[in-house]
């Protein structure tokens, strides 16, 4: 095994990802020097406060607005990507993603209902929307799994993909109906359906971060099982992996990751499909590497897309979902066709 080469690739990826993060934090309508930026970050980490010579306003802009936003984008990108990687292994389909299970559209319906009915959570009114999104995402997946189980007990892949598709079509219908009934929120709903990191702050990061870490560790512990699962249910069973149980547990984790991401930012497509795919091209299919690298690549890609979404037509913002699709889709098509040519 070419361990050295892999190590080098990991190191380059990590540096690249850090570089992209710094670029994303620095770039915008207000400029900051690297020294000041690190001064601000250092000041907050050490608790010394804003260093001398840096305007407190810069501190606000970078520490309160840009950094959490960039990190939020990074974590959402990472979370979506590892859930995508996981789904692709479980369904033995490199073109699958959590979308095929309808998590995203399910979450949108939850948020839409909250907007239209005006219901709020007691004690945490600010989290009503994300919470509803998450719960509905989970509900959709659960429905998908239950339906699939009713149809065939071993939950074959085709069944899951089909059910997910049918459910998300149905759910989209409900969503469209809701936005037709409620014109007042249609703009908000529309933005939410396309995804945005605008005004995402530390409070979002504070929830995303632990969820990401816990789910990531959970999936990493299952990484060998996922390797085995990617040979298909039958072979996995033969090798001693309880395919059904593994599927349910990992789908729940994926639902949590996707649900919370979608809830905080709206529906952002494509990243979860592309990042693991690119990572597999670079690092091979072993999940011990695919999972962490997908997180890094997906995160960096999402942060870049958010940078574009807020700077391209500044001060106006483009929905980040539109950016991911516009950049990602042609790129993905290229990767897909290139690999097909190679196989031939």
């Amino acid at each position: 095994m070419n361990k050295k080469g892999t190590g080098l690739k990991i190191a380059i990826s990590a540096v690249l990802c850090l570089f992209i993060l710094v670029v994303c934090i620095r770039a915008g309508s207000v400029y900051i020097s690297l020294k000041d930026l690190f001064g601000i970050i250092g000041g907050h980490i050490t608790g010394k406060g804003t260093p001398e010579g840096v305007a407190p306003m810069m501190d606000s802009i970078f520490w309160t607005i840009r950094m959490p936003r960039a990190l939020c984008a990074f974590m959402v990108g990472g979370a979506l990507s590892i859930s995508g990687a996981c789904m692709q292994a479980l369904l033995q389909n490199p073109l699958a993603s959590s979308y095929t299970l309808g998590v995203s559209s399910g979450a949108s319906v939850g948020a839409a209902l909250v907007l239209v009915t005006g219901i709020t959570l007691p004690f945490f009114p600010n989290f009503t929307l994300p919470f509803a999104g998450f719960v509905f995402g989970l509900l959709t997946v659960t429905c998908a799994i239950l339906l699939a189980r009713a149809i065939d007990r071993s939950i074959s892949n085709t069944t899951v993909v089909l059910i997910g598709m049918v459910l998300s079509l149905f759910v989209n219908g409900v969503l469209n109906l809701l936005s037709t009934f409620d014109d007042a929120h249609s703009k908000q709903l529309y933005l939410w359906m396309m995804g945005s990191f605008s005004a995402r702050g530390w409070k979002h990061c504070a929830i995303l971060f632990p969820v990401c870490i816990v789910c990531f560790i959970g999936l990493m512990l299952m990484s060998r099982k996922m390797d085995i699962m990617s040979f298909g249910d039958l072979q996995a069973q033969a090798m001693g992996v309880d395919a059904k149980k593994t599927k349910i547990v990992s789908i729940l984790i994926c639902a949590l990751l996707t649900g919370i991401s979608v809830a905080f930012t709206g529906v952002i497509g494509f990243v979860d499909l592309a990042a693991p795919h690119v990572v597999r091209k670079l690092f091979g299919p072993t999940h011990k590497l695919v999972l962490p690298m997908s997180f890094i690549y997906g995160g960096a890609f999402m942060a870049l897309c958010d940078l574009i979404s807020r700077t391209l037509l500044s001060p106006r913002e483009i929905p980040v979902g539109a950016v991911t699709a516009l950049i990602g889709a042609p790129f993905f098509a290229y990767v897909f066709f290139a690999s097909r040519r190679k196989n031939r």
Binding site: S29, M57, M58, I61, I65, P315, R316
Partner: peptide, 12 residues
């Protein structure tokens, strides 16, 4: 004018 939040903050 249409300005971004960051520009508004930077104007202090």
């Amino acid at each position: 004018l249409a300005i971004s939040i960051e520009e508004a903050l930077a104007a202090d």
